[in-house]
Simulated scan of single mutants.
Amino acid sequence: MQRSRIAVTGASGLIGSALVRSLRADGHDVVRLVRRPAVAADEVEWDPKRLYVDVAGLVGCDAVVHLAGAGVGERRWTEAYKKEIRDSRVLGTTAISQALASLAEPPKVLVCGTALGYYGDTGSSAVDESAPAGEGFLPSVCVEWEAAAAPAEEAGIRVAYARTGLVVARQGGAWGRLFPIFGAGLGGRIGDGRQYWSFISLHDEVAALRHLLDTESLSGPVNLTAPEPVTNREVTAAMGRVLRRPTPFPVPAAALRVALGDFAADVLGSQRVLPGRLLESGFAFAFPTIDESIRAA
Rank of each mutant, 00 (worst) to 15 (best):
A255T: 09
P229Y: 08
V251K: 12
L218V: 05
V230M: 05
D204R: 00
V235L: 14
P246K: 11
V206S: 05
L202S: 04
L274E: 06
F199L: 10
H203G: 05
A238I: 14
E216T: 15
T231Y: 11
P227T: 01
Q195G: 02
P248W: 14
G261D: 10
R245F: 12
G191Y: 09
E234A: 08
V242Q: 02
F263A: 15
G187N: 05
P221E: 11
A265G: 07
W197V: 15
A264N: 05
D266V: 15
R257H: 11
R241A: 02
P248A: 13
V258Q: 13
I200K: 03
N223D: 00
L202T: 03
I190A: 00
V273T: 07
V258A: 15
G193S: 13
L213E: 04
S217A: 13
G193Y: 14
T236R: 10
G187V: 09
L218F: 07
A264P: 04
G191M: 10
P229Q: 11
T215S: 11
R194C: 09
Q195H: 09
R244Y: 00
A265M: 01
L268S: 00
L202F: 07
R272I: 10
D266A: 12
L243S: 04
G185C: 04
S201L: 01
D214R: 14
E228L: 05
S270L: 12
T215R: 09
G269S: 10
I190T: 02
G261V: 10
H211W: 12
A207W: 03
Y196N: 08
R241K: 08
D262I: 03
S217R: 10
S217E: 12
L256P: 09
V242F: 02
L274T: 03
F263E: 12
T225L: 01
V235R: 05
D262N: 09
V273L: 07
V267N: 02
S217D: 05
L274V: 06
T231L: 07
P250A: 07
R194A: 12
A253R: 07
T236H: 07
A264M: 05
R272G: 09
V251G: 14
S217V: 08
